[in-house]
């Protein structure tokens, strides 16, 4: 397929811009807590003799409605560089209360809105996430997590062709290190597992010739509500 090497960069960016989101909130914030974050990363691919992630990026904000429910929104910066307004907004909620040492499960619903500034084409893609996370550390602020992300696509394809790929799953394994104000997240995704990647150039780093493994990083600053300091009395 040497003939079409460069042509297929088209494929790369198409995948990048549409199918792969950056890191997201899996553990709800504290009540009335506000966080502003910057995410960076993408699927790994071979480039100039090495392997690098595609430079996806997004700017996000999140707000803790209560201790179990957080709303968030994001503007995708890389998409913006292509003249594509890509906004997402959603909620994530713990499904149950549990003792700190018990893993928790949260679920998220996200809506992606995409509008290009060239022809005004619009797309809306809903996304449903299921997250499992386990906190650890002195104040149990750090956590590891596993996420199943599901994209849904109900738009018809070009030339009135039937859309048979209305569902796209992605898997993610991540770790967040947090202190009082900062959260640092490193996440590994396995995008579209099961889909052959041999036809795509540059070559994605998948597993067994399928899907694409991605590396994502996120940093966020939390504007915490004032914490009540309890002074022990003697």
């Amino acid at each position: 397929m040497f003939i079409f090497k460069r042509f297929l960069y088209f494929s790369l960016f198409a995948v990048v811009l549409s199918a792969c989101s950056t890191t997201r909130i899996v553990k709800p914030l504290a009540k009335k807590e506000l966080a502003i974050g910057l995410d960076f990363g993408g699927p790994l691919f071979g480039f100039a003799g090495t392997t690098i992630p595609v430079p996806l990026s997004s700017l996000s904000a999140a707000y803790g409605v209560d201790s179990m429910l957080t709303t968030f929104g994001a503007l995708h910066l890389t998409d913006a560089a292509f003249g594509l307004i890509h906004l997402e907004g959603g909620v994530v909620r713990d499904l149950y209360k549990a003792k700190p040492n018990i893993p928790k499960v949260s679920a998220g619903g996200t809506a992606h809105f995409m509008l290009d500034t060239w022809q005004g084409n619009f797309r809306f893609y809903p996304q449903i996430d299921l997250n499992c996370y386990w906190t650890y550390g002195k104040k149990r602020m750090n956590y590891v997590y596993f996420t199943l992300t599901n994209w849904f696509d109900f738009f018809p394809l070009a030339h009135n062709q039937p859309n048979r790929k209305f569902y796209t799953p992605n898997l993610a394994l991540g770790h967040t290190f947090a202190n009082k104000h900062m959260r640092y997240t490193l996440e590994m995704k396995y995008l579209t597992p099961g889909s052959p990647n041999s036809d795509l150039i540059p070559s994605y780093r998948g597993i067994g010739g399928r899907g694409a493994v991605g590396i994502y990083m996120g940093v966020s600053y939390r504007f915490s509500k004032r914490e009540k300091i309890i002074t022990p009395k003697f």
Binding site: L8, F10, S11, L12, F13, A14, V15, L17, S18, A19, D79, F82, L84, M114, D116, W118, Q119, N121, R123, Y125, W151, D153, F155, P156, L157, A158, H159, Q161, N163, K165, T168, T192, S195, L200
Partner: peptide, 19 residues
């Protein structure tokens, strides 16, 4: 078409004008 190219390289129905 360029639209089918864009769609074919994703799992989504994105229009080619996105790219």
């Amino acid at each position: 078409s360029s639209s089918v190219m864009a769609e074919g390289s994703t799992s989504l129905s994105i229009p080619s004008s996105f790219l």
